[in-house]
Computed example of a mutant assay.
Amino acid sequence: MIATTETVEILDRCENLGQIVLQSDVYEQYIQAKEELEKDREAQRLIKGFQDTKDHYEDVQRFGRYHPDYNTIMKDVREKKREMDMHDRVATYKIAERNLQKLLDEISQIVAFSISEQIKVPKDGMLFQDSGGCGCGSGGGCGCS
């Protein structure tokens, strides 16, 4: 690709947009929530416990229902996840993360739709979901939405 004046201008505008996002309240709230989460020992203990249980769950999943620990690990994963998700710092972080993702998705949609309404954009944190809302890739013509 040969760099043209137009290409350089587009890249400059993208850089400016990135700086605007980095200076936004949404990003500041995300960074603050992340720092508080990282400093909270109880939250880190819960996250570590969930990760360890999830690793064991993945081992058990290879054998499915035939594994002797299947029912136990399924219950443990749900309990650990719920306990982790109910912690204030974890919940605050997840909300901040979701808000930042929503902002980035909205920016992507505005940029894409300024070119064409037919461009697929990230939506609700999912890549390439159809703008028609059904997600099957048909552009909404299938009627499944």
Rank of each mutant, 00 (worst) to 15 (best):
K94Y: 09
E58H: 12
H56I: 12
S138H: 10
R98L: 04
N71I: 00
V111H: 01
G137L: 10
G125K: 05
C142A: 13
E42V: 06
L11E: 08
R41P: 00
G18Y: 10
I107K: 01
F50E: 00
D130F: 03
A96L: 02
E38L: 05
G139Y: 00
V111M: 03
M86A: 09
M74K: 13
L104A: 03
L100A: 07
K94C: 05
G139P: 01
V90A: 09
Y70C: 11
G133L: 11
S24T: 05
R62L: 09
Q109E: 15
C134N: 08
V60E: 00
R89L: 13
N71R: 03
E83M: 05
K123T: 13
D85K: 08
E83W: 05
K80F: 01
I95Q: 15
G141V: 15
C14S: 09
D55K: 10
F50P: 00
E9K: 03
I115F: 02
L46P: 01
M126E: 13
A91F: 09
V26I: 12
D59M: 08
V21P: 08
Y27K: 05
R89K: 09
R65C: 14
N99Q: 05
C14T: 12
E36K: 12
H67E: 04
F128L: 07
M126S: 07
G135T: 06
L17V: 02
T72Y: 06
K48T: 13
Q101L: 07
T72L: 04
I115H: 03
Q44G: 02
D76F: 04
N16I: 15
V90C: 14
K120P: 00
R89C: 11
G125R: 04
D40S: 12
D105C: 03
D55W: 05
H56S: 11
H67I: 12
G132H: 03
K75D: 12
V8N: 01
D59K: 15
G18D: 06
M86D: 14
L100D: 08
D25I: 09
E97C: 04
E6I: 04
P122D: 13
G140A: 10
I110N: 04
M74C: 14
E35K: 05
K81F: 04
H67V: 09
C142S: 15
K75Q: 10
E6T: 07
G143N: 14
M84N: 02
G140M: 12
S131E: 08
Y57F: 09
M1I: 02
C14I: 13
R13Q: 06
A33G: 05
I115A: 04
V8K: 06
L11I: 13
H56P: 02
K94P: 04
L11D: 07
K123I: 15
G133T: 12
C134L: 08
K102R: 14
G143M: 11
Q129C: 00
